[in-house]
Simulated scan of single mutants.
Amino acid sequence: MGLQAALHLLYPPQCLTCDARVTTDFGLCGVCWRETPFVAGLVCDHCGVPLPGEETGKPEYCDDCLSVARPWTQGRAALLYKDNARRIVLALKHGDRLDLARPASQWLHRAATPMIQPDMIVAPIPLHWFRLIKRRYNQAALLSAAVSKLAGLDHCPDLMIRRRHTGSQEGRNRDARFANMQDALTLHPRRANRVTGRHVLLIDDVMTSGATFAAAAEACLAGGAKAISVLALARVAKDT
């Protein structure tokens, strides 16, 4: 504790996304906190997007999840993908801000609480090997490792592989996103037996249409998983 206090005197904690001083490590200042859209209250039970109204104790679903079949049981997100949340995701994904994985995993763990079950195995959405070499790390794997530790769950970072380079989903409409991910993900042949009869929690940084999660969920179900839940750091939501 003495060493920590001394370090704080020499290097006062700074906000995760600006230079403002904060009272604890890995914290946000008041301004950045207000600009970070955390998901709270009533949400769609399939994708985690916020819904109008009060919680009733019964599952509620957004228009997208009512019109598109989801091969998973439940889904949650910690943030909405806009404002400071978008900056956090992009810094983690493209800016080598690996330190952001620690607070982000805590937000994810809190969002995942209604879904967590003792028998779950946690796995990240994989990157294609070419993109992994270029980026040097998979941000989803950093998040899934930390969430599994916080939740006390089994973790398999290489449960899945991406069979082909799918390119960016950005700029594609919903149908094109699903077509792009068709048969793109599969279970790792040496890890496939780990999903048999188990509930799998899939983790990624961003959910937009749900196409990537759908491809991963279908691969796990085909491999014998009994159920799938999905968890995203940020959820893209339509403006209302």
Rank of each mutant, 00 (worst) to 15 (best):
I203E: 02
S105D: 05
A237F: 00
P12C: 09
Q169R: 06
R87A: 10
K226E: 11
R21C: 03
V68A: 09
L202Y: 02
G48D: 04
R174I: 15
C47D: 06
H8T: 06
L28T: 04
L3D: 05
A101L: 11
D239F: 08
L9A: 12
S148N: 02
V43A: 13
E60S: 10
N193E: 12
L7A: 05
A6W: 14
V147S: 07
N173W: 06
L100W: 08
M207T: 07
I161K: 10
G210C: 06
T113Y: 15
S209I: 13
N84L: 10
N173C: 08
C156Y: 11
A141M: 07
G167K: 04
C32K: 07
C29M: 01
Y81K: 08
P13I: 08
A145R: 15
W72L: 05
F178H: 13
A78F: 12
A227L: 02
A5F: 13
V206C: 13
R164F: 13
S105L: 04
P50F: 00
L80P: 00
D19S: 13
A145D: 14
D99F: 11
W129H: 11
P71E: 07
L185W: 04
W129C: 07
D239A: 13
R136N: 11
S67P: 02
R190N: 13
C47H: 10
A141D: 02
P37T: 04
Y81Q: 03
Q182F: 14
R34Q: 14
R136V: 11
D19I: 10
A234D: 01
P114R: 05
H188W: 00
A151K: 07
W72N: 00
D183T: 11
A214F: 08
G152E: 10
I88H: 03
R191A: 12
Q106N: 00
R97S: 06
E170S: 15
D25E: 11
Q74I: 06
G53R: 03
Y81G: 02
H165Q: 13
A232S: 12
L7V: 07
R70K: 02
A5W: 14
V39P: 00
F130V: 15
A77R: 09
L98A: 05
P157I: 09
A146I: 01
S144G: 06
T113E: 15
D19T: 10
D83K: 13
P59W: 04
L153P: 11
L143S: 04
S168H: 10
G152C: 11
E54F: 14
T56V: 03
D19H: 15
I88F: 03
V122N: 02
W107P: 01
L187E: 02
P37L: 00
A140V: 01
D154A: 12
Q4N: 14
V206H: 12
P59Q: 08
M1R: 14
P118I: 03
L100R: 03
L159H: 03
P114C: 06
E60R: 09
A219Y: 06
P189S: 14
V31F: 09
Q182R: 15
I88A: 04
A216F: 06
P189D: 12
S209L: 12
P124D: 12
